[in-house]
């Protein structure tokens, strides 16, 4: 009981630390399964219409609330930009990866990840992106980007990532 209490305190401290310093929460460890990490500011030399441009200047991912696949306002804002970009650069097909945090069971999270990926897919299609360009894949809880076992990490792992082919 004492141990458990301590770990709760520790987790709370971690969450607090992460909330005050979100840039330290592990996003640096990579993008989706194959995408490079998202840059906070556009480095010089990014070619407009490139994959790097999409990731750096549009944002390749959206985040979901716990056990939800509905799109938050911030997610819709990102997807509006994605749709506009994808309509400008028609040469890309892409895959939407759906992911879940580690706080669910394996098979449910696979289904939840598919739901999330599909929410992104449907939103993009509704905003004028051709359905034939989109595939979805769910990784469930198998591919976290943030490695901590705390809410700050989990909130980054509950994501839909648009990966250009």
């Amino acid at each position: 009981m004492k141990l458990r209490f301590l770990s709760i305190v520790a987790a709370a401290a971690l969450v607090a630390a992460c909330e005050s310093a979100p840039e330290n929460t592990g996003a640096a460890s990579g993008g989706g399964v194959s995408a490079p990490p998202p840059a906070r500011t556009a480095p010089a030399g990014i070619v407009k219409g490139s994959k790097e441009d999409f990731i750096a200047n549009v944002g390749d991912r959206v985040f979901f609330d716990l056990d939800k696949s509905s799109l938050r306002a911030d997610a819709k804002a990102t997807l509006d930009k994605q749709a506009a970009w994808l309509k400008t650069y028609q040469n890309y097909s892409f895959t939407v990866e759906g992911h879940a945090d580690e706080r669910g069971t394996r098979e449910y999270n696979l289904a939840l990840g598919e739901r999330r990926a599909n929410s992104v897919r449907e939103y993009l299609i509704a905003n004028g992106v051709a359905a034939s360009r989109v595939k979805v894949v769910s990784y469930g809880k198998e591919r976290p980007v943030a490695l901590g076992s705390n809410e700050a990490a989990w909130s980054q792992n509950r994501r839909g990532v648009t990966v250009l082919n």
Binding site: S7, A11, L14, C18, N24, T25, G26, E102, A146, L147, G148, S149, A153
Partner: peptide, 9 residues
């Protein structure tokens, strides 16, 4: 059983 990890896994 899976155990929790820190920010570096």
């Amino acid at each position: 059983r899976d155990s929790p990890s820190d920010e570096r896994g």
